[in-house]
Design a protein around this nucleic acid. Structure first.
Lengths: 190, 190
DNA sequence: CGGTCTCTTGACGGAGTTCAAAGCTAGTGG
DNA sequence: CCACTAGCTTTGAACTCCGTCAAGAGACCG
């Protein structure tokens, strides 16, 4: 296992080489290819995933069977269905690799032991979650204050590199608009 | 100061009476009346607020000057603008009392000291934030899978007591619809 | 190359907004 | 305790953004 995660942790808290070595014992590396599923609707989400390389997305299917993307996670992001993970209840979401990816999986079953062994992780995750939650506050702000067209162009300007990595229809569902309307928007501009 | 917060902490982690006493040293109790502002747009958010009694909301004003409610916090919820709080950047949000409320304020300036003195709080906040983040995942799910009418009735069925406590127009802006449309929906049903 | 995803186009319809004005309610001061 | 006023809610008509549907054009992968 590489030191990508340890490096990320050190951006938030002090973390020694010994601690990093201990952390390794709790992680499984998953090399997954495009489109493979790490979690399916109905399963209990028993892992917290860290993206070393590649990209994951979380999505669900609405009553018409259409896939709605909820979140993306690229390098150095964590992803799990917290509702299912913490309560042990069946998940209503899917987690899928958008690209060929390298993922670290931490199991819920050893979580207690892990945090006891490395209490500094409590602080690390507190910080990470604060950041994620802050990002979500902004996301909701944008959803409610921008038209769908504005939302699209705004996202493109914020993440010009990322939009190259994902198909149009996935971005559309993440932003809450239809692929057809994205086409129309793009045509208008040119 | 009452023991409302200590009781809440004990729902997630072990917490002694001595620890609770120590925690008290870091909290200021604010008794605020309806409509008073704890944070204004442009200010840096320097506090994390815990609602002992009453209700807070976070909102922003869109380019047309309309208020958009982002979040509510009732008894036993925390509220802050995490983006501003953690980065020290000016906030784009307001935090306002919806009702006459009793609030505990924890200052950013003593945060480091507080978490050093009571490391168990790292774990407590990690849990709280996991829960909040999970709730937000669900909120986004609902925003993208329900029509505005469904969203309204669904919220009413989930929080029948809460909707009694807030004016219609605040709920409307929280759900992303206009007060006029809420009227129309309600008329349709009866 | 062949087949399956993905993206584009255009016509149509409807959910939900906007605007303006009237009706209602609750809080405040006298 | 009442009356006044500011703020909240309702109504209705006009309008528009954006989804839906269906069909065709590319693009990518085996």
């Amino acid at each position: 296992m590489s030191d990508i995660l340890a490096a990320h942790i050190r951006r938030f808290v002090g973390f020694t080489t010994e601690e990093a070595a201990m952390l390794n014992n709790y992680a499984s590396t998953l090399v997954v290819k495009k489109k493979s599923l790490l979690l399916q609707e109905g399963q209990v989400c028993r892992h917290n995933y860290f993206v070393e390389k590649g990209c994951l997305r979380m999505f669900f299917t609405d009553e018409k069977g259409a896939e709605q993307t909820n979140q993306f996670a690229i390098e150095n992001w964590w992803m799990t269905d917290y509702g299912s993970y913490t309560n042990g209840s069946p998940s209503q979401f899917y987690i899928q690799a958008v690209e060929h990816s390298s993922i670290l999986a931490f199991s819920k079953s050893t979580e207690r032991e892990l945090f006891t062994a490395l209490p500094v992780l409590d602080q690390y995750f507190r910080r990470i979650l604060e950041k994620s939650f802050g990002a979500t506050q902004w996301r909701i702000r944008y959803i409610f204050s921008q038209s769908k067209e504005e939302r699209y162009w705004h996202f493109c300007s914020l993440y010009p590199d990322f939009i190259q990595r994902i198909p149009q229809y996935m971005l559309a569902s993440y932003l809450g608009l239809t692929p057809e309307y994205v086409s129309e928007i793009r045509k208008k501009k040119s």
